[in-house]
Design a protein around this nucleic acid. Structure first.
Lengths: 199, 199, 199, 199
DNA sequence: CATGAATGAGATTTCATTCAT
DNA sequence: CATGAATGAAATCTCATTCAT
């Protein structure tokens, strides 16, 4: 019973640390954040971090894993109810928007993150990739013949979105790239795809 | 005359350092490279770096500036003789390919580089952007009416290319992303554009 | 309560560092001492210094501030009970003697110390200056008319003492300048002053 | 003959270096000046310094020796024609004034200078010390009985002057301590001495 | 003799990690 | 479990000195 109280406390602290790390990462970047920054922001001591995480690297991996899953799940949920491809794209951007600062950090620092974080990032992409492929196949059936394989269309879309996020400092210095350009991106991307259909 | 001998030596050493830095950066990444890594790779002493560069940051900026200009110029040159948009894209990828490992690092670490390095990166993009816009306007005149503005098409293309480069570890672990996927990228991108024309 | 144990330890370490720095400074000089000298002398690791002081400069300033205040206070205390000027001078030298090696370093390196340290040095001088002026006014009232302003007498006395300290390597290679010459200095200085009175 | 030309050149360069070092030392301080500062100010290359001086330390010692001797000689010359002690003091200050910035550096950095420099500084003091003792003995014959030994009066005078020079940043931030306070110092010092005589 | 490129021994400072309390 | 003092391995940058030209 006593144990449970302790465990509860531990879980609470860990949750706090994960949430705080997420916030600090969103603001300062992941690799630029020191362990002590998170401790301070969470109002706990320096050493507490290492009670809950084996190392800084492990912490980053876990934060990315947890929030990556959150993002993936949310994206999945939003995508579920989408009939049309353009709706899906909107859902996708909507999902990103809810986590934009953090997601942008993942995009920017992607290759510099600890190895374990990569899987989480891939998982996020898979979440939308699945729905994307389905929607494309449903919608652009005819185009499959002459066609651009759907995974390439997906990469194009992802590339476009990430390009805007990664260069957000130029495109939208105030920080809300998706809010500002999301509509345009969807519209243009859809126009490109559907042009094929109209011929 | 005597002076020239001395100056020559200095220029040679600086050139050596720039080239070595370029190589090491290409391999280990830019921000992950320590000053002493470059010194060691160049076979000079630690302090020599600081004879030629005011600081590590200044060195990074200069390396990026020098090779950025090289890339921009090469791109520009290759693009000059391109009539067709697809030729231009081929020229673009060709230009990148010659510097692929380094260029990939620029893409990956973009936002984490010293301020001065950003301008160089932008300059590279401008080199291809100009030719791209012209080719699009020449080729897809009709599409301008309904159309997707050419800068958005450009961003789409850049996004696509950068997406492949940034995820090169997944797409082509051996390291030659462009060689492996370049053709496909051009083909698909062109198909998307020209579909509109065919209608 | 638990906290106190921790805080106590920290305070102890800091006190140890301050005392050690004071000792090392006294022996090697202030600006000639490296951070690691103090760490080694204190038997702590290099990095510990920076747990307790923001920077080397801050450390120097704090050591000078703490011991400067000690010196000033001690001087003040000793001076309080002095009726006669000669007693005051004796008290002054007595105060200096207790801190002679360190005080000598302050005199020697005065102008080369961090800005913040200067105030501390001035504060020490003020401690004696006040009592000095009072004693002079009390004792040499008549001389004020023809007179040498008391601040000049003070500067003369300080100059004399500092001259002996600064050239201690010549006057007293064994290191105890005041012990050896203090009496003479007071005697002579008093003789000069009182001669005026006797006329 | 050819050799002579070379030697001439060498001597000229060395003279230039000595003079330049003197100037730079006067302005920046002695121990704060880097070898390259002097080279730059002299318009010669970095390495030239080491053609003429075995090491930085040797250079400092030589500069101090040369200009120390100049100061001593000048002081001696000025002192020669002085009948009265007050004239001597005036001559002393006059001599210092001609070299004030450099002399002040000697006073401030005295104990931090290379060992060899100390002798030069002592020599300067001897130059005035000799004349001082003589004047005192001539003038204050009677006082010798009850008396303050003349070397102590000398130290008092030197202490007073050095105290003003060393604290020049407080007394005369514009830099001309002697010009501003010299008269007062002489007057007061003389008053103290002569008071004894008048009794 | 003069040059100045190259050297490399330090010195300060940061920060992830450990561990006694 | 939480704490935070202590650790020490880096990493950057400075500058006196050397030496080939």
């Amino acid at each position: 019973m006593k144990k449970t109280a302790r465990e509860l406390q531990k879980e609470q602290t860990k949750a706090l640390l994960l949430k705080t790390a997420y916030n600090v990462f969103s603001e300062k970047g992941i690799m630029n954040t020191r362990v002590s920054d998170i401790a301070q922001a969470a109002g706990v001591s320096h050493g507490t971090i290492f009670v809950h995480f084996r190392s800084q690297e492990a912490m980053i991996e876990e934060v990315v894993a947890v929030y990556g899953q959150k993002i993936a799940l949310r994206t999945h949920t939003l995508a579920q109810s989408c009939g049309h491809l353009s709706e899906l794209l909107r859902a996708h951007l909507h999902g990103i928007m809810e986590f934009e600062p953090f997601y942008t950090r993942l995009v920017i620092e992607n290759r510099l993150l600890p190895t374990g974080a990569k899987d989480s990032i891939i998982a996020i992409q898979s979440a939308i990739s699945f729905h994307f492929s389905q929607a494309v196949q449903r919608e652009l059936k005819s185009s499959q013949s002459d066609g651009i394989p759907s995974y390439l269309l997906f990469n194009m879309w992802m590339g476009l979105v990430h390009y805007y996020l990664a260069n957000g400092d130029l495109f939208a210095p105030e920080g809300h790239v998706i809010r500002r350009y999301g509509g345009t991106l969807i519209q243009s991307f859809m126009k490109l795809l559907t042009a094929k259909e109209e011929k």
